[in-house]
Design a protein around this nucleic acid. Sequence first.
DNA 1: TAATTTTTATGAACACTGTTCATTATCTTT
DNA 2: AAAGATAATGAACAGTGTTCATAAAAATTA
Lengths: 206, 206
Amino acid sequence: MGVAQRKEREKLELRDLILEASKSILLKSGKEGLSIRKIAAEIEYSPATIYLYYTDKDAILHDLMERGFEQLGHYMVPCWSESDPGKRILMIGQAYVKFALDHKDWYDLMFNSASPMKHLEKCKEDWDAGVQMFDTLVETCRLYVETSHRKHLKPEILALQLWASVHGLVNLAQTERLDIVRSGDSSELIFETLESIYLSIFLGAE
Amino acid sequence: MGVAQRKEREKLELRDLILEASKSILLKSGKEGLSIRKIAAEIEYSPATIYLYYTDKDAILHDLMERGFEQLGHYMVPCWSESDPGKRILMIGQAYVKFALDHKDWYDLMFNSASPMKHLEKCKEDWDAGVQMFDTLVETCRLYVETSHRKHLKPEILALQLWASVHGLVNLAQTERLDIVRSGDSSELIFETLESIYLSIFLGAE
DNA sequence: TAATTTTTATGAACACTGTTCATTATCTTT
DNA sequence: AAAGATAATGAACAGTGTTCATAAAAATTA
């Protein structure tokens, strides 16, 4: 009865094939260029076949999002060896921005697109990767607050404040709204503002 | 020779009709529901006719964006009667958030969509409304910095920091990412975080 | 091995999208 | 009323996500 197991394995393999093709197209041609028909062409199957392995395009985007969180996790590995919570928060922010600048479309899918969320609604699955990532930031903020002289700060709010600031900065950059502020190389402006964000938080510390 | 003038007027009237129909559809059915064919149906013309008055869909979106900035301007009117720069900055932020929450899709078009920007590239027009709005924020920040005890702050960076924070917060809310932080009513969380943002900046002041 | 059943793949279609262009209808001028 | 200019449109093109009856392949049974 090894047939059922092999079939199951093949099913997973094709799912993975679809996902890898999707990732490749996303990173190459962006979100606009990612269509069911192009995925089908890439893996040399009919478009209809995709729907035997994924219920939706949204379902594919959701899995793609999860892979994105894995990738983002890699960017954050160096942060965990930093014991000072303040410094670690800064490192997390920088890693986050670096990921966003390196993988514009992936970031967009993970943090701006509504599609993967629609899929979550349907399946009532958890938002595992995102929740976990935010929780670690909250935890680091809690550490910071405890070691600082501003114990009135709520770690949750502080974490959200940080996330929102960096997320907004990245989004303004990626939608070319930073040209309003200063034309030219935006990454310099980004990191200067990033520093300002952290200074305004940590300056109130002592 | 009043014919030419009437024709010109009619041309403008139809442009306006197209724009009003677009606005109505955007506010009712969102960005997804806004299509050339639906605009045409709304004004009872053929889809092809639209292209006699607008070169692109992007061109329509661009004009729609400008109207959005007018609307946002209305939200900000009360801010200009506040003389204290610090308080005014807070009021601007609150007005900005209120506009975003009231007109989700309009905000999205103005600050997230790439389409109107593509049109700008083609026409090499200025980014009038956006630039002007940001400049007034920079000016208010300059006032604040001059009256504060932190004269090392760059008004431009401070303004961007504020914009990014609020923009990020609004975006996280509108893409339902705030559910990660805390489920339930998000507007409470938004204004609590907004306050925290301002506190972290103004606390460093004295 | 042959026939049958189950699983897997697909071609064609549907309802959309933005956009173009030759043709038709309307209006203005002669 | 005829000629010329302007405005509006129907039809088509290439693309999108998705569905479903049909066809091919594989697995099971006789």
